[in-house]
């Protein structure tokens, strides 16, 4: 696996989804296309636009650099069946670490704008994109995604394109608020996206990862950004389950198993994320890195045939999030 060379542009794969599946169907998807004067294209999937299930699916698949699929399914949480988000990722370290992970913090007007998407694979500007050897050297277009309440303007998109070394006319930016259906889907779909950086943090080599998939219940969609933010994160820390297929020694897994899931935070386990976020002054940069941890991770070692599982779901918190 480590000798496999993937010499294809994930930015262009994402741009192909945008150009063939999204833009031609903008009306049916309830999204808005804005072509800015600097040539950049902004796709509003959930700021002023309503969005929907399919827009959320495309938001996610674009964010994966075209290397994965989001399908909808359902889970039973407590007494209730809920829609759920199933992610199947090809080349998981490239799809997630080089693209999907929302960790490129671009300083802008006194704040950091968190960028995800394949644009991160151009300059590899953060620790997670640097954790894999893939670099997109072939991109004709560049694609960024932002979870935000503000529409990006010409100044910002020009700045972003410049950071990547491209013209803004080659740039697509996809945006949605958290408090929309697209927001709930695209954040909830960050199950494997949450798991791989956690494994990396604890020393699991990305070269060892072979395949991955994940599922997350979609517990809530609400207008209020703070409530929405809390509930979508509840779905991840109390509801997501990732399967990761690795090729390493069992000891490499066993030694980190207890440190992976959110359940390790026994002092706060069971507290809704909205409350944890409030304890962090509602500022993501102040949230403990240990709190951004997957709910449950299953590791399957293809070298030994042994399987490992860590973490647990909290149906109580999820049911509370669901009912409001």
């Amino acid at each position: 696996m480590s000798e496999f060379q993937f010499n294809t542009s994930i930015n262009d794969r994402s741009a192909e989804i945008i150009e063939k599946k999204v833009i031609p169907n903008a009306d049916k998807l309830n999204i808005e296309i804005h072509r800015l004067n600097n040539g950049a294209t902004v796709l509003d999937m959930g700021i002023n636009a309503k969005g929907g299930w399919l827009a959320g699916k495309y938001f996610t698949e674009i964010g994966l650099g075209g290397l994965g699929e989001l399908s909808f399914t359902k889970m039973k949480i407590g007494r209730y069946f809920m829609p759920a988000l199933k992610i199947s990722v090809d080349l998981p370290t490239i799809a997630e670490m080089s693209s999907h992970v929302a960790f490129w913090r671009v300083p802008w007007q006194g704040k950091n704008v968190n960028i995800s998407g394949p644009i991160r694979s151009i300059k590899r500007p953060d620790i997670f994109s640097q954790a894999v050897s893939y670099q997109d050297k072939w991109a004709k277009k560049i694609v960024a995604e932002i979870q935000t309440t503000e529409m990006p303007d010409e100044a910002f998109t020009s700045h972003l394109a410049e950071q990547a070394g491209y013209s803004p006319k080659d740039l697509y930016v996809i945006v949605a608020r958290t408090g929309t259906l697209v927001g709930a889907i695209q954040v909830g779909a960050r199950n494997v996206e949450q798991t791989l950086p956690t494994l990396f943090d604890h020393g699991l080599k990305m070269d060892w990862i072979v395949q991955a998939n994940g599922i997350t219940p979609m517990v809530s969609v609400v207008d209020d950004e703070l409530i929405a933010y809390g509930r979508v994160n509840d779905s991840l820390i109390y509801g997501q389950e990732s399967n990761v297929y690795v090729n390493c020694e069992d000891e490499d897994i066993i030694s980190i198993l207890d440190r992976i899931p959110f359940y390790k935070n026994k002092d706060v386990f069971g507290i809704p994320f909205q409350d944890l976020f409030a304890r962090s002054d509602n500022d993501w940069t102040k949230v403990s890195r240990d709190w951004d941890a997957p709910c449950k991770v299953n590791l399957f070692n293809i070298k030994t045939g042994h399987s490992f599982s860590t973490g647990r779901l909290s149906h109580e918190v999820l049911e509370k999030s669901f009912l409001g």
Binding site: N25, K28, L29, N30, G52, W53, L54, A55, K57, S71, F72, T73, K74, P83
Partner: peptide, 26 residues
Amino acid sequence: GMGYVNFGEMALEGFALPTVDTYFDN
């Protein structure tokens, strides 16, 4: 083009019954 459909399951009396799951955008 304004929705999604998939097949799922429901456990009932030991049977994994097929379900039709639908997702409506509009």
